[in-house]
C-alpha cells in the first residue's frame, strides 16, 4: 500500500465518529454497525484527523509530546487507518 504523503489532508471518513466512552474507559471509533476500541496513542492521532495535513498533524503531536519519538509510528498508523477505511485522505 502507498504511503500517506506529508501534504495529504487527513480526516475521519464519512460516517465515522470518535468519542470517549466512560463504560469502556477508552476512546472508540464508531461506524456503520461497528466499533473499534482505541488505545491512547491511536486516539491522540485520530483526534487530530480533522482535515489538516499529515505534516501539521505530526508537528502538533510532537509539540504535545516533546519527549516521544513518534513520527515513524504515526506514519505507519496512518497507512493502517487509511487501509481500514477509517480515514479520508485527500
Amino acid at each position: 500500500m502507498s504511503t500517506v504523503v506529508d501534504a495529504a489532508k487527513v480526516a475521519l471518513a464519512p460516517g465515522y465518529r470518535l468519542q470517549w466512552e466512560p463504560a469502556q474507559q477508552a476512546h472508540v471509533l464508531l461506524y456503520p454497525e461497528g466499533m473499534v476500541s482505541l488505545n491512547e496513542s491511536a486516539a491522540e492521532v485520530l483526534k487530530r484527523c480533522d482535515g489538516r495535513s499529515l505534516l501539521a498533524l505530526i508537528e502538533d503531536l510532537q509539540q504535545q509530546y516533546p519527549d516521544a519519538d513518534l513520527e515513524a509510528d504515526v506514519r505507519e498508523f496512518m497507512e493502517v487507518a487509511r487501509d481500514e477505511g477509517w480515514l479520508r485522505v485527500d
Binding site: 466512552e21 472508540v28 454497525e33 466499533m35
Partner: peptide
C-alpha cells in the same frame, strides 16, 4: 447508562 453505544 450501562454502556451501550451501538444502537440498531
Amino acid at each position: 447508562a450501562l454502556g451501550a453505544v451501538q444502537l440498531g
